[in-house]
Simulated assay, not measured.
Amino acid sequence: MIASVRGPVLHVGLEHVVVEVGGVGLHVHTTPATAAGCTTGREVTLATTLVVREESLTLYGFDGSEARGLFEQVQTVSGVGPRLALAMLSVHSPDGVRQAIAGGDLAALTKVPGIGKKGAERIVLELKDKILAMGVEPSLGGPTTPSTGADPVGAQVHEALVGLGWSSKQADDAIERVRATGATPTAVSDFLKSALRELGR
């Protein structure tokens, strides 16, 4: 189990970073927000979890142990794998995910690409008591805080959103809503963050 990595950032993508550890570049899958917080050439420390499959070893990284713990916890639910767990943390903050589960907020959970009503109900059924036992207050059904990154070039933002699981139309609508605010971000990470924020409303 690789619990954390620390080293200079060699590359930053929309949903991953490459961190040099002991002369080896490790490809770490992250949320867009985590990737946006990394800068090429600067040292970063990420809490990580290694997902082992027959055909691959995949490393996922987070800003802290709280997000990593939730990433691992939601995967105890049948049908929730690492990609879906990461998508949940891309759309909502860790607190937002916990509050949605504790309050049975299916609308918030189904905003995550890949989670339908039945999937949301299963997540609530299997995790609600565990989340409540942690002292988490249920949400009141309001919007949860998105935790995401972004991109000013429409085509790149569109590609990233579709890659995260939204439809082409949903991606276009989110991009247009961001532009309609009159304050279009000029950085890749900022634009994607704003678009994801719109999708999380």
Rank of each mutant, 00 (worst) to 15 (best):
Leu50Glu: 11
Val188Lys: 05
Lys130Gly: 01
Leu125Ile: 09
Leu84His: 09
Pro146His: 09
Pro146Cys: 02
Gly141Cys: 12
Asp105Ala: 04
His27Thr: 11
Gln156Asp: 14
Ala171Phe: 11
Val153Phe: 12
Pro138Cys: 11
Val9Tyr: 12
Lys117Leu: 11
Ser167Gln: 09
Gly163Thr: 10
Leu132Trp: 01
Arg83Leu: 05
Ser189Lys: 13
Ala174Gln: 07
Val12Leu: 15
Thr39Lys: 15
Pro113Thr: 05
Arg53Val: 07
Leu57Asp: 03
Leu164Ala: 02
Gln170Met: 11
Gly141Ile: 09
Asp129Met: 06
Thr145Met: 00
Asp151Leu: 13
Cys38Arg: 12
Glu176Ala: 14
Cys38Trp: 05
Leu140Gln: 14
Val178Gln: 03
Gly23Ile: 13
Val124Leu: 10
Val12Trp: 14
Leu84Trp: 02
Leu26Lys: 06
Gly96Asp: 01
Gly25His: 13
Val9Ala: 14
Ala67Leu: 07
Met134Pro: 00
Gly163Pro: 07
Gly165Tyr: 03
Glu54Tyr: 01
Gly200Gln: 03
Thr40Asp: 14
Ile123Phe: 02
Gln73Val: 00
Glu15Asn: 08
Asp173Leu: 10
Gly104Tyr: 04
Val44Asp: 03
Lys111Asn: 08
Lys111Asp: 09
Val24Asn: 01
Thr40Cys: 13
Arg42Leu: 15
Gly79Glu: 05
Ile101Glu: 07
Leu199Ile: 07
Ile101Lys: 04
Glu54Phe: 05
Leu161Ala: 05
Val91Cys: 13
Glu66Phe: 01
Gly165Asn: 03
Leu192Phe: 04
Phe71Asp: 03
Pro94Trp: 07
Pro32Val: 08
Leu70Pro: 00
His16Thr: 10
Val19Gln: 02
Ser168Ile: 13
Gly154Pro: 10
Pro138Ser: 13
Ile123Asp: 03
Val24Trp: 01
Gly81Glu: 10
Ser168Met: 12
Arg201Lys: 14
Gly81Tyr: 12
Gly200Phe: 03
His16Ile: 03
Ile175Lys: 00
Ala47Asp: 10
His92Tyr: 14
Leu84Gly: 00
Val28Ala: 01
Glu198Pro: 02
Thr148Asn: 00
Pro32Leu: 07
Leu196Gln: 03
Pro152Gly: 06
Ile115Tyr: 04
Ala180Asp: 14
Thr40Gly: 15
Arg6Gly: 08
Pro113Trp: 10
Leu140Phe: 13
Glu43Ser: 13
Ser168Asn: 13
Gly154Trp: 12
Pro82Phe: 07
Ser189Leu: 06
Glu137Ser: 13
Ile123Leu: 08
Ser139Glu: 04
Thr30Cys: 14
Val24Gln: 10
Val178Pro: 04
Arg122Cys: 09
Leu10Ser: 14
Val124Asp: 05
Leu59Cys: 11
Val51Glu: 12
Leu86His: 04
Leu132Ile: 10
Thr145Ala: 12
